[in-house]
């Protein structure tokens, strides 16, 4: 049996877990290619028009993958931390895909609650049972997968250049080079290093988040806010760039909270959607870097 994993949304954050898990169970794993124009076009064709860019791209990945595998993983990730959500669209992702793309193969859509190891294991057990009856094999695959996931450290931490900016936003906007037009390389070329939220300790984020009136109930919003507030307070960076997809409900809130917290600290929001032109983005990034270099603010 061939299992397909679309390279979109939280793939960038959690692919070692899923890949190792299915490989250890003895399945062949296919992954869709890196995001490109063709995938985006497919996604725009199938996806409901009000959705955000990352979701459209995910639809595109599924569309190119669906004929190449027997079963396809549409991760319905409900939680990665206890009592927190990701985004309502993640909860309904399998339904959105099934009702938008015709002739889908079988899909794995069981809700994933990754708040604790035990809850995650119950997901793995149910999925493993579709494939093998050998319980110890499932357990072994699960353990291996977790080890691989722990080893995996995505993100950027480069402050050896003249200037440093913090790159904030949802992981899929930060790591998908097609979505963000390879902004990290662009910044590096201009002599700017990049830090992302993975290199700030959880405890520091918790500390920042405590200052909020209301417990943040979206995991990635919590990370983005905590990270931005921390780098601002400890003056680790010269400026902050927030990559946000157009019509992202969560970003519309988090950006406001961050702006409120950091006051006049240099901050730029890059809005991206399927019409984003690269030249316009270049200009804005260059202007921002110029401004940081001159120390205008």
């Amino acid at each position: 049996m061939i299992v397909g994993i679309p390279k979109g949304l939280l793939y960038y954050k959690y692919y070692p877990f899923f890949m190792t898990f299915f490989k250890e169970l003895g399945l062949e794993v296919v992954i869709s290619p890196d995001t490109n124009k063709g995938i985006l076009d497919e996604g725009v064709k199938y996806c409901v028009d009000d959705a955000c860019l990352p979701l459209k791209i995910f639809h595109g990945h599924v569309a190119v993958l669906k004929d190449k595998c027997d079963i396809i993983l549409i991760p319905r990730i409900m939680q990665v931390r206890n009592r927190e959500y990701i985004c309502p669209k993640f909860c309904g992702l399998p339904e959105m895909i099934q009702n938008s793309i015709p002739q889908m193969p079988r899909i794995i859509d069981k809700p994933i609650y990754a708040g604790t190891r035990k809850k995650l294991y119950s997901w793995a057990k149910d999925i493993g049972r579709l494939i093998t009856k050998d319980k110890s094999k499932i357990k072994r695959a699960f353990n291996f997968a977790l080890i691989e996931q722990d080893k995996y450290k995505p993100g950027y931490n480069d402050n050896n250049q003249g200037l440093t900016v913090a790159l904030v936003g949802h992981p899929y906007n930060i790591f998908d080079k097609y979505i963000n037009k390879n902004i990290v390389q662009k910044l590096n070329k201009l002599g700017v290093g990049v830090i992302t939220e993975e290199f700030i300790e959880e405890t520091l984020i918790d500390e920042e988040v405590k200052g909020l009136y209301k417990r943040p109930f979206w995991t990635f919003a919590r990370n983005s806010y905590g990270f931005a507030a921390n780098v601002y307070r400890e003056k680790r960076v010269n400026g902050i760039i927030y990559i946000s997809s157009f019509a992202c409900g969560i970003d519309s809130v988090v950006i406001e909270l961050i702006k409120e917290r950091i006051g006049n600290f240099p901050f730029m929001t890059l809005k991206i959607d399927e019409h984003t032109g690269e030249a316009g983005l270049d200009t804005r990034v260059e202007a921002f870097v110029d401004m940081l270099g001159r120390g205008v603010i």
């Binding site: 309502p88 209301k214 809130v253």
Partner: peptide, 18 residues
């Protein structure tokens, strides 16, 4: 009235206070 997600309404109060 408030709520704690996942819809944006839960964050209204804090943003409006700010």
């Amino acid at each position: 009235p408030g709520s704690c997600g996942p819809c944006r309404f839960g964050k209204y109060a804090e943003m409006q206070m700010n």
